[in-house]
């Protein structure tokens, strides 16, 4: 009970963060054509500074300004109507604001939370891999491209070169990595059977998590009523 009211900056309960993000995205997509939706997004965005790391919030603002601005301009120039431009901006903003709670979570916290509620291990493991494997894959593709250059092929635009010099070595490397990773996972004691296992450093719902979701719902109600 003591911990329930304690305030921890940027540590939303993972599942609540995801539900909150999704609620924002879905509501904004439904009401994207309404100007109220813009006010809703601004309010929610400002509110997020209280609950989520300000660096994540600011990064999403950069994305919103560049991409949202571009789409606003395209929509406005094509239709010659300001409301169409705003509608397009709202749609882009829906994703950039809605993904803030999800992006602020570490994949480890989400996996721990799912393990805590006894979600299937296959899903937890797969999700962790998807989240944490992107930099590795980018590195691998860079290495394959360097290998291509070493063999004298400098472009992937030629389909033959793309197939023989990029895709085949890349998939071969992926198969190798997946074999090594699965062996490593098995030796660490992971398996897909529903055996009992301990979860250290459990995630608990706090008052501020509930407040976060309630504030989003309140904003939605106000946007619909007013």
């Amino acid at each position: 009970m003591k911990n329930f009211f304690s305030y921890k900056y940027s540590s939303l309960y993972p599942l609540i963060a995801i539900v909150g993000g999704l609620t924002i995205v879905i509501f904004t997509l439904v009401f994207a054509n309404d100007v109220k939706c813009t006010y809703f997004l601004i309010t929610v965005y400002l509110m997020m500074f209280l609950f989520i790391d300000y660096k994540v919030c600011l990064k999403s603002l950069i994305y919103l300004i560049i991409i949202g601005g571009l789409f606003f301009l395209i929509a406005y120039l094509v239709s010659d109507r300001l409301d169409q431009g705003v509608s397009m901006l709202n749609r882009v903003a829906a994703f950039s604001v809605g993904m803030i709670p999800g992006v602020s979570l570490g994949p480890d916290r989400l996996a721990r939370n799912l393990a805590q509620i006894r979600a299937p291990r296959s899903l937890t493991i797969g999700m962790l891999i998807v989240f944490s494997f992107m930099p590795t894959l980018l590195n691998e593709s860079r290495r394959v491209k360097e290998g291509m250059k070493a063999r004298g092929s400098f472009t992937v635009l030629n389909p033959k070169i793309l197939y023989r010099a990029f895709l085949i070595p890349f998939i071969t490397r992926i198969v190798d990595i997946s074999d090594t990773l699965s062996l490593s996972i098995e030796t660490r004691g992971f398996d897909l059977h529903n055996k009992n296992y301990s979860v250290y450093k459990k995630e608990y719902i706090r008052f501020f998590d509930i407040l976060f979701i309630l504030l989003i719902v309140l904003c939605i109600i106000l946007a619909v009523i007013l």
Binding site: I125, L137, L181, S182, L183, I185
Partner: peptide
């Protein structure tokens, strides 16, 4: 499904 299947599919 085995672990190696899940890992490959995830990658």
């Amino acid at each position: 499904f085995k672990i190696k299947d899940i890992v490959f599919l995830a990658i």
